[in-house]
Structures are given as C-alpha cells and as structure tokens.
C-alpha cells in the first residue's frame, strides 16, 4: 500500500483530470452566462478530432491544437446561435450538437484516412519536465484565470449577471446576447482544448467516440463543484483520481476500494449532489431563461 501512491499515480491522476478540468471550465463559463451546455461532450469530440486532422494537414501539433480549438468553437457558435438568437430549447440544441459531432467525426475519419474507427498517428504536443504534457500545465493555469475573469473583471461580472437575471442585466444596459455568445464560444474553445489533450496530448491519434462521456463528467464536475472554478476543478480532480486509481486498483490485488465503485463514483456523487442531500446545490438563477420574455 505504501508504494501505491507514487509519483506515477499522481501524474496518472493529472492525466485523467486534465480534459475534465478544461471542459469543466468551459461548462462554468457557459452555465454562468445562463446557457445550459450538455453539448460539452460533442465539443470535446470535435476538438479531439480536428486537433488530429489539423496536425495531419499542417504537420504541426501546435497548429493542430489551434484548429481543434477553433473547430470546437464553431460547434459552440452553432449551439449559441440556436440557444440565444433562435431562442430554441438549450437541451435540444445540445443533443443535436452531440449527435452531429459523433456522426461527423466518424464520417470524416472514413473520408480522410479511408478507414473506420481510428486515424493514423500524428505528432504529439510536447511534454514538459519529462512526462507531463504541456496542456496539463495549461489546465492548471486556466483555473485561476477563469476564477479571476468571472469574479474580478467587469466583463466576467456582466457574464454572471446575464446568467443570474437576464432581464435585470438587460435593464441596466448589459448586452446579455453578446456576453452569452462570448461565454458559449469560450466554453467550446476550452472543451475543444480538453478534447485536443485526449487526442494529441495524451495519445497521438483519434478513435471513434474517444471522449467516452467525459463531457458529461465535466458537466457533473461543474454541478458538484457548485459552479465555481476552484470547486469544479476540485471535483474534476476527484473524478479524475477515481478513474486513475481504478485503473491501478484493477492491477493491484487486495486493493481496499472496489474498482467498480470508483468508476461509478462521479455519477453517484453528482446524483446525490443535485438532490441537495450534501448541501444546497443552486445553479445560476437565470439558467435557460431568455433576456426579454414575450
């Protein structure tokens, strides 16, 4: 047991938490502005695919990551257009984005690499200090940045006002539409970065449905973390740790915690959290509401 919690395990935890942290920060921005984002999953998948495709086209993983982030932002732009401008149902739009992302990435693998299931290998983003990928550090930096942005800048406070009470925000001259667009597109960019980490940070290729529900776990982390950046990052670390320890636990005989329980942990904890049994769980009051009712 004593040599179970090693540096290797710590890096494994960071590795599985990084995509969750990045997507969760995106989820916070979107939800704080008042737009429900169950499309995080699709945006991550889009980012993961186009990061590989971009690297394949340009030969540079940096440009590839930028293309992945850009593509996920485009997906987010579609989500924003349907949710904000068309005032459509935000969960309906999110479901559509997820379906299209799953279909389009599968379709494009076939088209670009002429085979099903997985792409060829491309160059990875570099590691720093030996084994820790550069995007892991990016995730660590982005959490305080999102916190600072939301709670310490005018723009961030306006974003939160748009999410708490769109009508009140509108009446004091805050451009709710603009703030929400910005927040949703930023959420796409962050989710896309999380996806890019999965495909060209942690691995060097894209496989079908490689996000495997991480977008939903990130959403769970947002809720479990009480819609605050540090809370959500903590939840994402906890959920990532559950994943990483579960993999180790399966290899370690006589490990005290059931590996099956560990994989179910994020879902169980979130289920309990939203019922308010642990503590009152309150999202932005204006979530899902439109600025001017008619």
């Amino acid at each position: 047991m004593s040599d179970f919690f090693t540096v290797a395990l710590l890096t494994a935890i960071l590795r599985s938490a990084t995509p969750l942290v990045l997507a969760a920060m995106g989820g916070i921005l979107s939800e704080r502005s008042g737009v429900i984002n169950i499309a995080l999953e699709g945006m991550m998948l889009t980012g993961a695919f186009f990061a590989v495709a971009g690297t394949h086209w340009t030969g540079s993983p940096w440009l590839g990551a930028a293309i992945g982030v850009g593509a996920a932002s485009v997906a987010a732009m579609i989500h924003a257009f349907w949710c904000i401008t068309l005032r459509g149902n935000q969960i309906v739009a999110g479901t559509a984005i997820n379906l299209i992302a799953a279909g389009l990435t599968a379709f494009l693998i076939q088209l670009i690499w002429d085979r099903a299931g997985a792409t060829d290998s491309v160059e990875q983003l570099p590691d720093l200090f030996g084994t820790v990928n550069v995007l892991v550090f990016a995730a660590l930096v982005i959490v305080p940045l999102v916190h600072f942005y939301l709670f310490r800048t005018k723009q961030g406070l306006h974003t939160m006002a748009s999410g708490e009470s769109p009508q009140a925000a509108e009446s004091v001259g805050i451009d709710v539409t603009r703030n929400r667009y910005l927040a949703v597109v930023a959420s796409g960019a962050l989710a896309g970065m999380g996806g890019a980490y999965l495909s060209i940070g942690n691995l060097s290729y894209f496989t079908l449905d490689m996000t495997a529900g991480r977008g939903f776990i990130a959403l769970a982390a947002v809720i479990f973390g009480g819609w605050t950046p540090f809370g959500a990052a903590g939840a994402a670390l906890l959920f990532g740790a559950a994943q990483a320890i579960q993999i180790e636990a399966q290899a370690t005989s006589g490990f005290p915690i059931s590996a099956d329980l560990l994989v179910a942990l994020p879902y169980l904890l979130t289920l309990i959290a939203v019922t308010g049994l642990i503590r009152k769980s309150n999202g932005p009051a204006g979530l899902g509401q439109h600025a001017n009712a008619h």
């Binding site: 349907w82 379906l99 299209i100 599968a106």
Partner: peptide, 25 residues
C-alpha cells in the same frame, strides 16, 4: 458514402425542428 452520415442527418433534423420552432415564435 460512409453510413455515419446518418447520425449527422439525425442531428441536423433536430436542429431544423428547433429552428422551425423559433420561426413559430
């Protein structure tokens, strides 16, 4: 044509229905 295009079509149908709802308003 890869059969995965069908998933894309399903997503597009949802978006189109949602857009039609918007027009309804």
């Amino acid at each position: 044509v890869s059969r995965d295009i069908v998933l894309v079509l399903q997503g597009l149908v949802i978006l189109a229905v949602a857009a039609f709802e918007a027009m309804n308003r």
